[in-house]
Amino acid sequence: MAVIEVDELRKEYRLRRGRRTAALDGVSFEVPEGGVFGFVGPNGAGKTTTIRCLLGLVRPTSGRCSVLGVDPQVHVERIQRRVGSLIETQALFPAFSGHRNLAHLARLHRLPLRRVDDVLEQVGLAERADDALATYSLGMHQRLGIAAALLKEPELLILDEPANGLDPQGIVEIRHLLERIGGEGRTVFVSSHQLAEVQQVCDRVAVLARGRCVATGPVDDVLASVGTTGIVVRVDDPPAAVAVLVADGFEAWIDDDGAVRSALPPGDAPLLARALAGHDIYPRELRAGGASLEEAFLELTRRGQQP
């Protein structure tokens, strides 16, 4: 059974002079029960808008979505007790301590206050629980937001960029937390830019680009659908190599570890080698790019952004 169903969801926003822009342009995907589902896409792809539709905060222009079998636009109150959420950075009351903020939320659903201590412990905030929120770092705000989402012991956890602002240690802790929750039979729906994290923690993903879902399914299937993509070239002078390739009409860039990358299929590697050699640039390494989710994401979103 799908805990989230999104069917041809479209959301338009009005611009000045009567123009309209579509934040979502017919998004469809399903999230099965249990496990961790990743929702990835570049900035502006429509991830947060989709999440807001799922939570009943934004009314779609057309299409439909359901959460735990309920249309959130009609009966959001029926699922609120069963869904925990974090939308970007959770905005709570800065003058209150973390504990007091969560205690207020707990009162809204008449939850036992010991749950507050439990979730603060889970996200590693127990020691700072009595400090005012105004003294928290961005990462601590994020942990508190996740704690708030966990407070109701929800069947479904919807998290929008939960790793924002977290340090590497915090990211690992949140990964373990999500894995544990997903392993308990509950469902975690998480949007993220941390693609390496998504690949490690998620069973399934949906990739969004320009308001459309360009791929969805188990992570391995999504990677397989893209195939082994791109070419990695290591040279002594990467900027010069990129300049040469771009001048010759190739798409090329320098990646985070200083290698030159191209989106060309691996079979076209001789073309790159020839172009570089023509300018006295000789690769130290020339290989096919690994099929990481990051690469798959880049390829899928590149395809999705082509008109």
Partner: peptide
């Protein structure tokens, strides 16, 4: 301004 209303509405959506 603080963005608290979206948070509140995910707890009480009516």
């Amino acid at each position: 301004q603080a963005g608290f209303l979206p948070t509140l509405l995910t707890w009480e959506g009516r």
